[in-house]
């Protein structure tokens, strides 16, 4: 302030520059964080993905420009890549189908009973209080061959005597859906909670029945919630390696990209392949997400 006062007539011109300097100072920690923990690791990842095995030191890798690794991993793991996105898509669709009515009830129907609204929100968020690893393990127990679910389904002849649930794609998609429901539910709830029911009344007044009103008014007005919910579910689900791991709900027939990356990094110690797969995963998600956001209308999302 003292300096500004001394500056005299130029004060008004100085003001905006001072403001931008403050903005820069405030941004600095964020920029520093992003550079250190995103840009640098990302460059390192790109470099690793292009490395070749060292000819002199076994187990070491030399810097090179070997883009052939990308071609190799896509050829080798195309099944797992496609499966990852298919599973993520299924989990997103199921989570949406399950969460929308739930979020609609909490956000719109339960407005008259704030207590019920609060209680139901707590129930949606409560699972976060327990590690998702533990919850997924619990599901492994529940769905295990000795568990009551399998025995009951076998008794009803839905499952054959040799069938399992754990280790199958069904269990993995179930696990993904279950784990991501809160991520779908909360953004949906926030948009539906703000939904002005007077629009629904107007639609009703203009000859639209319940179904037409839902399709023409409710869904478009809750689109921001649908878009952020599906993104929050699809992106992490596509790269998830816990549910599909054989230690949890998965098996050899349900391996996803995350598991392949994990095994390349930690078991096979094939760092270039793992790095290349990671970059491919990131790139595909980026393409899908930007196409999706563009189609559903960015102005609604922002």
């Amino acid at each position: 302030m003292a300096i500004a006062a001394l500056a005299g007539p130029t004060v008004t011109q100085e003001a905006p520059r001072k403001k931008s300097r403050i903005a820069l100072v405030l941004l600095l920690p964020g920029i520093f964080y992003l550079v250190l923990f995103f840009i640098v690791p990302f460059i390192s990842l790109v470099i690793t993905s292009l490395q070749v095995p060292s000819e002199t030191n076994f187990g070491q890798f030399d810097t090179a420009f070997n883009w052939q690794t990308y071609v190799d991993v896509v050829g080798q793991y195309s099944t797992q890549i496609l499966r990852s996105f298919f599973f993520a898509l299924l989990a997103t669709v199921f989570a949406l189908l399950f969460s929308y009515p739930l979020a609609y009830f909490i956000g719109v129907k339960a407005r008259r009973w704030p207590l019920l609204q609060g209680l139901m929100l707590v129930l949606v968020i409560a699972p976060f209080f327990i590690s998702f690893l533990l919850r997924t393990l619990a599901w492994k127990q529940i769905l295990s061959d000795e568990g009551f679910v399998v025995s009951a389904l076998k008794a009803l002849s839905v499952l054959g005597p040799q069938d399992h649930i754990t280790g199958t794609p069904v269990a993995v998609v179930f696990g993904l859906t279950y784990n991501f429901i809160p991520f779908m539910c909360l953004p949906l709830y926030t948009t539906l909670e703000r939904l002005d029911v007077r629009y629904l009344e107007a639609s009703n007044d203009l000859y639209a029945g319940p179904f037409a009103t839902f399709r023409k008014v409710t869904i478009p007005l809750s689109l921001p919630g649908i878009v952020s919910g599906t993104l929050l579910t699809f992106i992490p689900a596509a790269g998830d390696y816990v549910n599909a791991s054989s230690e949890f709900l998965g098996g050899s027939s349900s391996t996803m990209m995350g598991n392949v990356i994990q095994s390349n990094f930690l078991v096979q110690l094939n760092y270039p392949a793992a790095a290349a797969l990671s970059i491919i995963l990131m790139a595909i998600i980026l393409v899908i997400v930007s196409a999706y956001v563009r189609r559903s209308g960015t102005d609604d999302l922002l």
């Binding site: 629009y199 107007a202 009703n204 007044d205 000859y207 639209a208 029945g209 478009p220 689109l223 609604d300």
Partner: peptide, 21 residues
Amino acid sequence: MKPFQRPVNTVFQSYALFPHM
């Protein structure tokens, strides 16, 4: 009868124009 079945239209106090259309 439900609102959408009635031969009635309303000009609402809040207008209630659909913001997405």
